[in-house]
Computed example of a mutant assay.
Amino acid sequence: MSKEVVRNFYKADILGDPTVLKTYFHPEISLIWNSNDGLTIMNYQDLEGFFGEIRNTYDDLRIEVSHLLQDDNFVTIRYKYYVSTLENPEEELGIAHFIAIWEIKDGQMYRGYQVSQPVTELDDTTESYHKVKV
């Protein structure tokens, strides 16, 4: 069941479905995110604001998953986000690579540990990223 929760969240329509957070995120969620900007710790309210900004910024959001693994109530996912902006909806851009480990509690994503890295020009020259069907 844990793997399905994570799979379904990453397949969900984050831009078009305002119930995504309530459906998949535990009310006491904590996301610890290491990125180029440093360490960010987000709770439910922080994630509401974050997803609101995404909805206001992007015309389309697509995910490409390479790994989805489960160990008990922990699920690890590796993926890449692609976006189209409101200003240029015809052009899709890869924006970042992510790996996240999610702890599932009460059928929802409860604790997340995520690392991200921006896409670089080297991404266009490598075929090493393998897609898996989620």
Rank of each mutant, 00 (worst) to 15 (best):
T120M: 03
D46A: 09
V115I: 15
H67R: 15
I99A: 13
I77P: 00
D46P: 01
D72H: 12
N43F: 03
E91F: 12
K80T: 05
F74H: 15
R62M: 08
I99S: 11
D123G: 02
E91V: 15
H67K: 15
S128L: 10
N34C: 11
Y44N: 08
Y44D: 04
E103F: 09
G112K: 00
K22W: 08
Y82N: 08
I104G: 00
G38E: 04
Y110S: 05
I95K: 00
Q108I: 06
F25H: 03
V5E: 02
T85F: 06
E48S: 13
L122T: 09
I32S: 10
V65C: 12
L122P: 00
H67L: 13
Q117I: 07
H26M: 02
D60H: 12
F74T: 15
T120N: 01
Y81H: 12
V20E: 02
F51V: 05
R55Q: 08
T57H: 09
S35F: 02
Y79C: 06
T40R: 12
T40H: 13
G49C: 11
R78I: 05
D60M: 09
E53G: 10
Y44V: 00
E121K: 07
K131G: 08
N56F: 05
L39M: 12
E64D: 11
T120V: 01
G112A: 07
E48W: 07
W102E: 05
E4Q: 10
D71M: 15
V115Q: 12
K80N: 01
K80E: 01
D13P: 06
K133A: 02
Y113E: 07
K3R: 07
N43A: 05
H130R: 14
Q45P: 00
V119D: 01
Y113P: 04
D37H: 13
Y113L: 07
L93T: 09
R78P: 02
Q70L: 08
Y81A: 10
D46E: 08
M109V: 02
W102T: 07
G49V: 12
S66D: 07
S66K: 10
I101N: 08
S2M: 01
V75T: 14
P27F: 10
H67N: 15
I99H: 09
P18F: 03
A12N: 09
D59G: 13
S30H: 06
Y82V: 04
I63M: 11
S35T: 13
I29F: 14
F74C: 14
H130S: 11
Y58H: 02
M42Q: 12
L122F: 08
D59N: 15
K22M: 08
R55S: 04
Q114K: 13
L68Y: 04
G107H: 06
L15S: 00
N34E: 10
G94D: 01
Q70M: 08
G107V: 10
G94W: 00
D13W: 08
L86Q: 09
I54K: 03
S35Q: 04
S128A: 14
F25S: 01
I101M: 13
D72Q: 13
P27T: 00
E103C: 03
